[in-house]
Simulated assay, not measured.
Amino acid sequence: MRIGSAVEAKSGISASNPEMIVVRGYDLSKGLVGHISFTDHVWLLITGTAPEASQRRVLDATLVAIAEHGLVPSVVAARMTLAAAPEALQGAVAAGILGCGSVILGSSQAAGDFFHEIAEAAKASGDMDGTIRETVTRYRAAKRAIPGYGHPLHKGGDARAARLFEVAAEAGLSGEHIKVARAVEALLPELIGKALALNVSAAIPAVLLDAGFPVKALKGIPILARTASLVGHLLEEQLRPIGFIMAHEASSAITYDGTSPEGFVANEG
């Protein structure tokens, strides 16, 4: 029994024969290796076309901006996994990436969907502010967070977001989605009763969408960037291990409040 939609059994990404490997229409060995950067290759693999210099610059900037952010949950999970299974680097990287969701890393996709929805509706209505008001009100009524705004540390503004907007402007790619992102930030005090600065998870999709990056692939960019950082952390974990230290500190930081036999004291000794 066939499962899923009935589509042609075809793929346009790569193929090979004994003499050649073709990737998106290019001879991999002669046309790509040694000729393009990895950032170029990412754009090519995802979109099917080689990037313009301006598109490469914006994509490169987003990858650099989101790759590393200290001992965040994805890094902690990866380092503790490697401590427990030192032979499985791939498992440790996977452990770090599996937590990509609405709070960590995945919020760029949610913000991109949000901006894309507003930009398309505003194009039809000719009223960006009205579209933002309607969309934010609908999100709030559904108890959905406004993705890409607010940060527990960078409350006064996220320097990474500001720099990404500068890069987009320098590359000549500052467009409608950046306008939407900034307009939402300006209207939030009126709409939700408090100011929330846009963060890097808002800036990444805004600049990428203005550069022509596909909305459905946005989540892949933070995942790709953080993978590079995880490999760095996992090399350090092998040379200067802290995984079990983090596990011990986590155990010490949590107070047991369940039932226990008389005289039992948790974490004693």
Rank of each mutant, 00 (worst) to 15 (best):
A141T: 07
A122M: 00
A206G: 01
P51F: 10
D40R: 01
V64T: 08
G70A: 14
L98P: 09
S108L: 03
G31F: 04
V200K: 04
A92S: 04
V7D: 13
G126M: 02
V265N: 09
G175L: 04
L188E: 03
A247L: 15
E236Y: 01
L187D: 09
L224N: 03
P73S: 10
I21H: 13
V58A: 11
A169W: 06
A95M: 10
E120W: 03
L173A: 00
A168F: 04
L173Q: 12
T227I: 02
S252F: 15
S125K: 06
I204R: 06
F244V: 13
M80E: 15
G101W: 04
R160W: 05
T259R: 14
L235Q: 15
V207H: 07
H248K: 14
R57A: 13
G70D: 05
Q90W: 08
A142L: 15
G269W: 11
A50G: 00
V207R: 01
G99C: 03
L209T: 01
V200M: 02
T227F: 12
A9Y: 10
A53D: 10
E236Q: 11
D129V: 10
P241N: 09
H151E: 03
R144W: 04
R79F: 07
D158Y: 05
K179T: 12
H116R: 04
E134R: 10
W43K: 00
P152L: 02
G148C: 07
S260M: 06
L230F: 05
I97P: 06
